[in-house]
Design a protein around this nucleic acid. Structure first.
Lengths: 228, 228
DNA sequence: TTGATTTTATGATCTGCATCATGAAATTAA
DNA sequence: TTAATTTCATGATGCAGATCATAAAATCAA
């Protein structure tokens, strides 16, 4: 993890955006900027929590492990997103790992200072609470989908979610590249099944794939798949 | 939903426990006590959020629906627990339903007043945030379990969780009665499978069942099942 | 108290998806 | 540039758990 002091602009993340003017210099003082290469681990499930991170550029996957081989991707985080807040709670151990999917620059805030910020800044505290609330809703929705929705529907849902979060490039592809394995881990299935379903969707002209970039051609169809 | 004004003791729920003395009369003023019979619906998924509830006695299941027939139980709430907070967020619609599993008495606080309380009482706000954080951890753990753990493991985990939350009666049974169907919905499986696994566990002398009450005889064995 | 509904119980079958196996293509390392 | 490692691609096989079918008990309604 390369250290660096002049990366973030003090206005991308929620901590800075919601910051009280007087507190900003303190933030500036406490932050530590880092960069990660593709595939590098930010923190690992089970490690003690030292602080939280804000992403300044790049994409990170947040994932839970099962045994050595298997995982479930719980969330993707991008520019401006907070990472590591799942460690806040009773245990003070990260319940997830975070890994860079591409080169990433980010900002580290140690826990103590972050908690001080929450104490000082009630808007921040409230905003963070709402963020947790939204993530909880999301998580439980995904949970239900995992139980009752067939894989095809989950992949449809995942694609729509990703398009929503990352937007489209000019040529209509989702502005994010993720491998089949990650798509599988995100939808709670295996690589092979994910692959087969993607092939089906291509055949049905619902999506178009070239390399790792995926374009949604027929969002309505995906929405249908989401409900049955 | 029978209305009643003299149920809760103003010290069971988090709102009251963390309340600033001066604010307590306001709470007393805004609360509305209700009671539900077994099986009665407290609120339904999709309904607009009007406020939040605190349980004074009894047990409530919080569940998400899929189609007409299927559901997933996301949480059980008991004395002192908050219910309805999942509605707080962007949408202002309950993302879940809540149903009484036995006679329940509870306390309703309208949303506006609750939010005012959060504004006034930062301890409460902080505590609520931590609560969301813990629920999120829980939810994502369950999510991973749904994907990677076989049903038997999930049932083992569910039994341990329930024992933890509800404790034991004198005769060693989990202090809560839930039907097989609810156990199935809680572990994300079907009634039949839940039943079969329970039979296995009984045969293996890991649990004992009489009617709707379940006793854990061998917690270690359940813990083993949890990890593979 | 009796008929109706819900819950419990259990076997027989069916299937979506995981697993296994194998090779080609694409990255990455060296 | 070449060897090593990942990722992509696809068919063959197997199984955990869903679905279907039935009936007895228990609970509830009237």
């Amino acid at each position: 993890m390369k250290k660096d002091k002049h990366d973030c602009d003090l206005q991308t993340c929620m901590l800075c955006r919601l910051c009280i003017k007087e507190w900003l210099p303190a933030v500036d003082n406490h932050r530590k900027n880092f960069s990660l290469k593709k595939g590098q681990l930010l923190f690992r499930e089970g490690e003690p929590v030292t602080g939280i991170y804000f992403i300044f550029s790049g994409t990170v996957k947040v994932h839970k492990h099962w045994g050595e081989e298997k995982e479930l991707i719980v969330r993707f985080a991008r520019k401006g997103d907070i990472v590591g807040h799942r460690g806040v709670g009773a245990e003070m151990v990260y319940p997830v790992s975070a890994t860079a999917l591409e080169p990433v620059t980010l900002c580290f805030i140690d826990l103590e200072f972050f908690q001080a910020s929450l104490k000082v800044n009630h808007t921040l505290l409230h905003e963070l609470m709402m963020f947790y609330a939204r993530e909880l809703q999301e998580s439980e929705k995904n949970m239900r989908n995992l139980v009752h929705m067939p894989v095809k529907g989950r992949i449809a849902h995942a694609l729509l979610t990703l398009r929503d979060k990352f937007g489209n490039t000019e040529d209509g592809a989702i502005d994010m590249t993720l491998g089949r394995q990650d798509l599988a881990s995100f939808t709670g299935t295996t690589y092979e099944t994910a692959f087969r379903i993607m092939s089906e969707l291509i055949q049905e002209n619902v999506i178009a794939v070239s390399g790792k970039s995926i374009a949604v051609l027929n969002a309505e169809k995906l929405q249908e798949l989401e409900k049955l």
